[in-house]
């Protein structure tokens, strides 16, 4: 497969998503409104804990909430049934017949989508956050550079997880149950609701055993400079490991699923 083909696929993902401008605006407003409420809750919790909670001061707590809201769309924290629908309808056969690797092709489309949504969906919550509560962000360049790498990896991990879960559609008739279960677990454990660092011990242990913190907590930690230097590289390393692992698992399950498709004719 050529680099040019992948570039075109990434671009197509960009174009497809940029077509929904009004939807993007509406999404940004929604993310921002929820950010206002979330920042107030985190600040309230930090205040109730006596000024710091697991290393977060009031402004750091609010910054966490705003960054999480900004990353919801790019990382695609919520479920999308794109692939499930294609498997269900049999359109997946079209993907099989294309001379590009399906997983890589879908990943490129998802990266294109993420790249488009980064600014229109991410900037408004951060801007409002800066105005309303102020943001505690590092003054050096390095955390942002590494942060971008971490965000890209977060997108890849999120994609890989959704890809893997979607493939259950090869075997399950009704996917809504699996999708809901995935959404519940991932939304709590990725740090969307409350920072993972605030979890009680047992929940933190469960979260650490899943790829979910790599989807949101990790990039926010890197951008905010909560982890620096070797520690930051360690966090990114964990992300790389999860990305590789879950992508690989997705390839294996894909092979099994398509074999079933070919053998049983869908």
């Amino acid at each position: 497969m050529s680099v040019a083909a992948l570039a075109v696929l990434t671009q197509t993902g960009w174009k497809r998503w940029s077509a929904y401008r009004s939807a993007a605006l509406a999404g940004a407003v929604t993310n921002t409104v929820f950010g206002l409420i979330k920042a107030a809750i985190t600040m309230g919790a930090v205040g109730a804990a006596g000024g710091t909670l697991a290393g977060y001061g009031a402004i750091e707590g609010a910054t966490y909430a705003w960054l999480a809201q900004a990353l919801i769309a790019p990382v695609n924290v919520f479920w999308s049934n794109d692939l499930v629908d294609r498997i269900r309808s049999g359109d997946i056969a079209v993907d099989l017949s294309r001379p590009v690797d399906p997983q890589l092709a879908y990943l490129c489309a998802d990266l294109g989508r993420a790249a488009f949504s980064l600014v229109p969906r991410g900037a408004p919550p951060l801007l409002v956050g800066a105005l309303v509560t102020g943001l505690a962000l590092p003054g050096q360049l390095l955390p942002y550079v590494l942060g971008m790498v971490s965000v890209v990896l977060a997108v890849v991990v999120s994609f890989a997880c959704r890809w893997l879960v979607s493939l259950a559609a090869f075997w399950l008739i009704e996917m809504r149950g699996a999708a809901t279960l995935y959404l519940m677990t991932s939304n709590i454990l990725c740090g969307l609701v409350v920072p993972v660092h605030w979890f009680p011990g047992w929940m933190a242990a469960v979260a650490a055993a899943t790829p979910f913190p790599s989807m949101l907590q990790a990039p926010i930690d890197v951008i905010m400079g909560r982890v620096t230097g070797v520690d930051a590289l360690g966090v990114v390393g964990v992300q790389i490991a999860w990305a590789a692992g879950v992508l690989l698992a997705g390839r294996l399950v894909w092979t099994l699923g398509t074999r079933k498709l070919v053998v049983q004719g869908g």
């Binding site: 919790a45 109730a48 809901t180 519940m184 605030w198 009680p200 929940m203």
Partner: peptide
Amino acid sequence: LGSFGVGLIEFAEVYVIFSSIS
């Protein structure tokens, strides 16, 4: 069950916050 789960996520937020404050 899924709808129950959505409520559970919401309550989990309250639970986690109160695991470190009173």
